[in-house]
Design a protein around this nucleic acid. Structure first.
Lengths: 211, 211
DNA sequence: TTCCGATTTGACCAACCGGTCAAATCAACG
DNA sequence: CGTTGATTTGACCGGTTGGTCAAATCGGAA
């Protein structure tokens, strides 16, 4: 499971030399590639190890199990993922704040597609390891933001929309370009989707949200 | 691979008794459940067999391999999937035609979530078995529809949108409710998402598409 | 009942995979 | 150097999994 724990190191406060950090980093990097391509079950330690330039036992010297690598990745991912949500300013201009959020999310799809796919893989297959986080932190943040949005609507500074379904729309529209990349590129004859996506989503959300 | 072939039975014209058809159907049904939950690699023949009420060798008597079951599912899926697209009438009222498409797609997410997740699993992991179909049939259909939409826009009966990104929007927004069901329900405190989704998507696309 | 092809199954196999272990190698410090 | 702890590795293990096979069972036609 992924629940919370003391953020940094465990209570043991291991030394963590620079080399150790580098190897652990290389393993996470390789794990991200492999897990995002194949899902948890489809990934093999051999492939992760070879991708990271280590032998399998050596890899297991740094992380005690496949699960441990995967959970370390998910934990790191969730922070990055929830961050742009935090950045929405309740005191800002509503339409612009939300458009900024959309833009940031779309950039994440473009710049970190593997993370997006890792997340997608996990959720599509029932999110066995992060349901608690979804029902806890995520729901909390969405609830809070929903209140803000409802306030904006009541003030007439935003068109009336269901705040939660608005969130779903932002997530699905932006992440689609990372998660369904193969399909998108097949339809677009392999052109870069992002310039078009940017202007399309800007238009879509401006139309939806402007009072 | 999935490419095309003589549509119905193979050239051999096997008899296909009613019992055979029923068992093959049961296997596909079980396969759909298991593959959509676990992905190709995560699914096991033992689980599919037990879900279908057969022994593993018995299952392999009807389908020669795991791959064969999976491909049979994908093949059937693609037909159902591309169908609602065909149903768009170039001579109809643009906004209503497209809204109808959205409605049908959302219904499919609600009524056949396993199919949606199977498809999502396949695409997220690189669509190794259906890229040809995506680059062939799907791209063809989207290209044709894009011409229609551009015509509608030129006639001023539809707000100017990029037709292809419009398709992506429809797909992502509707399929999200099936594929990311766990997340959606976590945020909604386990309420039924669909009533809200319907009115939200209706609003969204009406705003986007009305000239 | 007898026969024959279709169906079903228990036993089994080889490949793969996550993980262990003891021995080897390395690197830093006195 | 030599020692000591950290790091690396080849060999190996047990469980799982896709798939095979020969034998058993079934079910309908004669």
């Amino acid at each position: 499971m992924i629940g919370k724990s003391a953020s940094g190191q465990g209570a043991k406060a291991a030394p963590q030399t620079r080399i150790q950090r580098a190897k652990r980093e290389a393993i996470l990097e390789a794990g991200l590639t492999v897990f995002s391509e194949a899902g948890f079950r489809g990934a093999t330690l051999d492939r992760i190890a070879s991708e990271a330039g280590l032998s399998k036992p050596n890899l297991l010297y740094y992380y005690p199990s496949k699960e441990a690598i995967y959970e370390a990745l998910l934990r790191g991912l969730l922070e990055t993922w929830l961050d742009p949500l935090q950045a929405i300013d309740p005191k800002g201009e509503p339409v612009e704040e939300l458009l900024g959020y959309v833009r940031r999310k779309l950039q994440m799809s473009r710049d970190f597609p593997r993370q997006s796919r890792l997340f997608a893989n996990e959720i599509v297959q029932g999110a066995p390891r992060i349901i608690p986080v979804l029902e806890g932190e995520l729901r909390g943040m969405v609830d809070r933001l929903s209140t803000v949005i409802e306030g904006w609507i009541a003030e007439g500074r935003l068109a009336p929309v269901d705040p939660r379904h608005l969130m779903f729309s932002v997530w699905s529209l932006t992440q689609h370009y990372a998660d369904f990349d193969v399909q998108v590129r097949a339809v677009l004859n392999n052109d870069d989707p992002y310039p078009g996506a940017e202007t399309h989503l800007e238009l879509l959300f401006r139309r939806l949200l402007t009072p």
